[in-house]
Nucleic acid binder design. Structure first.
Lengths: 145, 145
DNA sequence: TTCAAATCATACTAAATTACTCGGATTTCA
DNA sequence: TGAAATCCGAGTAATTTAGTATGATTTGAA
């Protein structure tokens, strides 16, 4: 029941972009450094995020990446689906285009996995990048007291 | 965010044993046939379940497997943990012995994954094999009307 | 007593996936 | 014109997955 590093690193990168939202484009190199990730590997991840319409790129010198919309309107679920595909603990309850087996109608374990899927999606779709930024701010303040 | 077939098949097998609970030991061969699974592969899965104390084995002819306790007292979470290890979308929020990175204290994405983990565990630990048997019964009745 | 049905144990393996690296082409600001 | 950046595709070592193969051991029943 593991996420790959794609989702793991990708969320970190998007959170980093969210924390710099509203300024100039952020080069991947700086994201990679701050988050301690491989820049080349991040390139591949951000390509998926770009194709999913979650970030915009600015090419050339002084270029970089920007969130395609406000942090409030990007949910963690959007990011994870873009990087890892539809949420599904098992193939037969994939959010889109599930491959159901012949016994799907009678399969009780399938209903268990559907509940797990909904529970995961519920959490991921309830948290926005803006929520994460607010939590970071709160944590920072608590630390300073 | 996928479960391996270990958890997937393992739950099916345990559900099969639950449906036959209270009778004689059930040979793996019949479980494998009913659930359309490889018997040899199931052997490996059930070995883990036995080591985890969830099933008891009876060796020799007329032998087989029995749930180690009532279906009411075996949760899906017990089965999944025995087969897949501690529940954790990412390494740093493993239920036991998590490998936290240096920034764990400040890492906001980590708190996201902790919430996902708790949500998954909440669902899995709320469903017992007995619940699944009742649901199967209900489904069967509905179908007959 | 012997046979067959079963569990138990270990080793092997093909295929897929993961988590990258590498090399270079292209774009664009200064 | 050069440096900083994105963009693109290929390659790859390591790991995991999903089994298969082989055989030893146990035990109830004919």
């Amino acid at each position: 029941m593991r996420l790959s590093t794609r989702g793991h690193y990708g969320l970190k990168a998007m959170f980093d972009l969210a924390q710099h939202y509203g300024t100039e484009p952020i080069p991947l190199k700086s994201v990679a450094e701050r988050q301690s990730l491989s820049e080349h590997y991040l390139e591949q991840l951000i390509a998926r995020l770009r194709k999913a319409g979650l970030v915009k790129s600015v090419r050339g010198a002084q270029g970089g990446y920007i969130l395609a919309r406000e942090p409030e309107k990007i949910k963690v679920g959007d990011i994870i689906r873009a990087l890892e595909g539809p949420i599904a603990p098992v193939e037969c309850v994939k959010e889109v285009d599930p491959k159901e087996c012949d016994q799907a109608d009678y399969c009780i374990s399938r209903t268990v996995w559907a509940r797990v899927r909904d529970s995961i999606a519920g959490v991921l779709d309830s948290i926005s990048l803006a929520d994460m930024c607010r939590e970071a701010e709160k944590m920072h303040q608590t630390k300073e007291l």
